[in-house]
Design a protein around this nucleic acid. Structure first.
Lengths: 176, 176
DNA sequence: AACCTTTGTTATATTAGCCAAACAGATGTT
DNA sequence: AACATCTGTTTGGCTAATATAACAAAGGTT
């Protein structure tokens, strides 16, 4: 499979992840969850929620009781745990290490949380764990990075590209 | 707008990004680019390529000459530069800093490159620039992190969660 | 009991992406 | 000139995810 086609092969889509997390959040919050609750929570119509949740049921992510009350299956619970873990790790990295504004960090995390592989998620967790651990070298490094951040970037001393950094200017000219 | 709905609001979808990058790559490689070339490059049917490229044309990302030869507009060129920059930065970070296997790093980068905001991309560039700069504190930190990576993670000393790390086990139990 | 509201499903439509297959036009070969 | 090939578009089908709107069933109120 070509690399670029793996995007659509994701078992967990953005929509599915958020429907599942909604069920989980509503259960924690109110102790129960129905189709209409999910629709209201996600601010979509109940018709849409009904159809998407039917898919989730068919694929074994959620189950329904005799009164149409919804709860995640074991598989669904696992999915929620994994997605939430990735989201938290990514938010932490973006906001506290990179110092991206919390709102932006949350938006970015929300867009990519379900797409980042577990391998990468795990490595990022280790990285954030260590950098936040209070280890001396981590502290020194972070301090040095904070200072570096405030000096304008230097295209000639970038080790990303061979010679000069080709991305610095692009990255500084704003949104896509 | 709710955070979770921003996903679908992305002007540049995965498909659009890759069609545009294909045009760019084919132009560099052969000096010209037609619908069929894009289709072959992306391994999709020319019918699909025809329709998607029509959208790209309507939205001003590409232009056509009298002989149906395609080239990116200024807007399209800018988009390609931005997406490629983000991809390279992400790959570098995942593979060389986190030490994720290059193939996996590429897959992950490909999935998220068009979703990461320019704000976050810029901060990540600075971060990777600095960490790879040869600065002493960066070198020490990286060495310490390499050592840490090889010791099993410790749920009690994780500063991500308040008490114990709730994600360590989840991240170590494999794919979603 | 009659009425109103809530709940959930279904039907229809839209957009984005893909497919396969048919078709139209240009080019090139015999 | 006839045939073959290549190029690009169009048509119809599929899935995912949304929207509206109609509808049936259950529940609660007066």
């Amino acid at each position: 499979m070509e690399v670029w086609k793996e995007f659509e092969q994701n078992e967990i889509t953005h929509s599915i992840a958020h429907h599942l997390m909604a069920v989980d959040a509503l259960l924690s919050r109110h102790g129960y969850c129905r189709v209409t609750d999910v629709a209201r929570y996600l601010n979509i119509t109940k018709g849409s929620a009904s159809i998407t949740l039917k898919h989730l049921k068919v694929r074994g992510y959620i189950e329904e009781d005799h009164n149409k009350f919804i709860h995640p299956s074991e598989k669904g619970k696992h999915t929620v745990r994994v997605v939430v873990a990735k989201r938290q790790i990514i938010i932490k990295f973006f906001s506290e290490v990179l110092r991206v504004e919390p709102e932006q960090a949350e938006i970015d995390a929300c867009k990519i949380e379900h797409l980042v592989s577990s391998r990468t998620g795990k490595q990022l967790l280790y990285f954030v764990q260590f950098i936040m651990s209070g280890d001396g070298s981590a502290r020194d490094f972070l301090n040095a990075f904070r200072a570096y951040q405030h000096t304008p970037g230097d295209a000639e001393n970038c080790n990303l590209c061979e010679d000069e950094c080709q991305f610095l200017e692009i990255c500084e000219t704003g949104e896509l």
